[in-house]
Simulated assay, not measured.
Amino acid sequence: MGVRYFKELVKDIFYPKDYSCVFCRWPLEKEYLCIMCRDKLIEVNGEKHIKIENETLNVNYIFLYSGYAVELIQKLKYKSDFRVGEIFAEYICNFIKSKCLENIDYITYIPMHRIDERKRKYNQCKVISKYISDYYDIDMIDTLIKTKRTKDQIGLSKNQRFRNLENVFRVKENLDIKNKTILIIDDVCTTGSTLYYCKKELQKLDPKEIIILTVCAR
């Protein structure tokens, strides 16, 4: 019996999970999406190429930001439904396996400003990353700090979104990722501005490769 299996067994005994569909509440065994609702969640597994500052940002994503995917994002982001984090992690792990991306050294995520994270009490990107980290037994590390609170990106133009995030992120001190392959996890990619600046910061430390993977893309 593996150590991870034993840990999961202990957790299930002392902290029983609510195994029911997150949408229709149909009782399930060891799952959070029933077949009917899963069929309504359209998996794309696409790649988005965004031109920013004479560079091309390559973003892998699982779903388009529409329909059931939006509802799931909102359940995780605003209703603290961490079952959704496991659902997203499942899809992401399948994507990683299908694209032969298992040779990842570290998993990281898009940070929130400390005040915003304190208010929400968690970072949804970190929640998803932790599940992926546990599944693949790959270290999840904090690599970036969001140094300024920013305006809500909703309603801003592409250029305004880009400038809104300039000089907002910085790498953590004493971070060593030289010659390492880093996977960055985000929930939603719209213009790619956040991911662009985060990647740019991490590139200062000479990683071997930076792979960007988001749950949804607009």
Rank of each mutant, 00 (worst) to 15 (best):
Y5I: 13
E8P: 02
S20E: 15
S20Q: 13
C21K: 03
R25E: 15
W26F: 13
P27I: 04
P27E: 09
E29N: 15
E31H: 11
M36C: 06
R38C: 05
L41G: 07
I42W: 04
E43I: 13
E43R: 09
K48N: 12
E53R: 07
L57M: 04
L57H: 03
V59M: 03
V59P: 00
V59N: 04
I62P: 01
F63N: 06
Y65L: 14
Y65T: 10
G67Q: 08
Y68R: 09
L72W: 05
K77R: 09
K77S: 02
Y78N: 11
F82V: 10
E90R: 08
Y91G: 04
F95A: 09
I96W: 03
K97I: 13
K97L: 12
K99V: 01
N103F: 09
I104L: 06
Y109R: 08
Y109W: 13
M112K: 05
D116N: 13
R118W: 02
I132T: 11
D137R: 15
I138H: 08
D139L: 10
D139N: 13
D142G: 08
L144V: 10
I145K: 05
T147I: 14
T147H: 07
K151M: 07
D152W: 03
L156V: 09
S157D: 01
K158S: 08
R161C: 01
R163P: 00
E166S: 11
N167E: 09
F169D: 00
N174W: 10
N179V: 08
T181P: 02
I182C: 01
L183G: 02
I185K: 05
D187L: 08
Y196C: 06
L202G: 00
Q203S: 07
P207K: 03
I210E: 00
